[in-house]
C-alpha cells in the first residue's frame, strides 16, 4: 500500500489535496473505462447542459407569430448574426435555431459554462456509478454531486438580470445581486470539492481498472 492509501490524519492539507487529486484522477480514468460509468458521465453532462439551457432561457418553446408574412415557416430555421466569432467571444448569442415548436439560442459562453458544470456533475455521478458497480467499494451517494450543480441553475441569464427574483417574487438587493453573481463559481467549487471527496473515498488502482475498487478511508 502506498502512502496515498493512508488516512488524512497527520498529513498536511497540500498532501491531502494532492492525494485526493491523484485518487480522483485514477477514479475518473477507471470510470471512463467502465461502459456504464462512462455512459453516466456523458448522459449527465448532456442532461445538465439541457436543463441549464432551459433555466437560463436559451432553450424553450418557440412563440411563433414573429416573422414577416411569407417568411420561413419550415420545420427548421437557423438565423446567424454577422461576425459570429467576435460576438460569440463577447458573450452574445450568435444563432437562433428553431426546430418545429422548439427554439434554441446558441450563446457559446453560456454553453461553455453549462458543459463545464455539467462535466463536473457527470464526473461526480460517474464515480458514484463506479462505486455502485464494484461491490467491494462502499457506496458514494450521488446526491451531493447533483445538489452541488443546482446553484448554477439559479444564476439566471446574462441578458436580463436577476430573473430568479422575478420567478420567486422576491425583492432584489445589492447583496442578493452579489450573491447571485457567485452562484456559478460556487457551484463549480462545490462540485470540485464533491468530486475530490468521492475520489478520496473511492480509490481505484489505474492498473486494475476492471477489478473491484477499495475503500481506503473514512469507512
Amino acid at each position: 500500500m502506498s502512502r496515498e492509501h493512508e488516512t488524512a490524519a497527520g498529513r498536511s492539507p497540500a498532501a491531502v489535496v494532492a492525494t485526493a487529486v491523484a485518487r480522483t484522477r485514477r477514479g475518473l480514468l477507471a470510470a471512463l473505462a467502465d461502459p456504464v460509468a462512462a455512459a453516466v458521465l456523458v448522459a449527465a453532462t448532456a442532461a445538465y447542459a439541457l436543463v441549464y439551457a432551459v433555466a437560463v432561457g436559451d432553450l424553450g418553446r418557440a412563440a411563433g407569430g414573429t416573422g414577416t408574412v411569407g417568411g420561413d415557416a419550415g420545420a427548421v430555421s437557423v438565423t446567424v448574426v454577422s461576425a459570429p466569432v467576435t460576438r460569440g467571444l463577447s458573450g452574445e448569442g450568435v444563432a437562433l435555431v428553431a426546430v418545429g415548436p422548439v427554439e434554441y439560442l446558441f450563446v457559446p459562453a453560456t454553453l461553455a459554462v453549462a458543459v463545464a458544470i455539467g462535466l463536473l456533475v457527470g464526473a461526480n455521478l460517474a464515480l458514484s456509478a463506479l462505486a455502485w458497480r464494484r461491490p467491494a467499494a462502499c457506496d458514494i451517494s450521488p446526491a451531493s454531486g447533483v445538489a452541488a450543480g443546482l446553484p448554477a441553475l439559479l444564476s439566471g441569464t446574462a441578458c436580463c438580470g436577476p430573473l430568479v427574483f422575478i420567478a420567486l417574487g422576491l425583492q432584489a438587493t445589492s447583496a442578493a445581486l452579489t450573491a447571485i453573481a457567485w452562484l456559478r463559481p460556487a457551484a463549480a467549487l462545490l462540485l470540485v470539492a464533491s468530486l475530490l471527496w468521492a475520489g478520496w473515498r473511492l480509490d481505484v488502482q489505474s492498473s486494475a481498472a476492471d477489478s473491484p475498487g477499495k475503500m481506503l478511508s473514512g469507512m
Binding site: A63, G64, T66, T79, V81, G93, L105, T157
Partner: peptide
C-alpha cells in the same frame, strides 16, 4: 442584428 428569443419575455 441580434439573435434573441423574441416572443419569450423573461419577465
Amino acid at each position: 442584428g441580434y439573435a434573441k428569443r423574441y416572443g419569450s419575455d423573461p419577465y
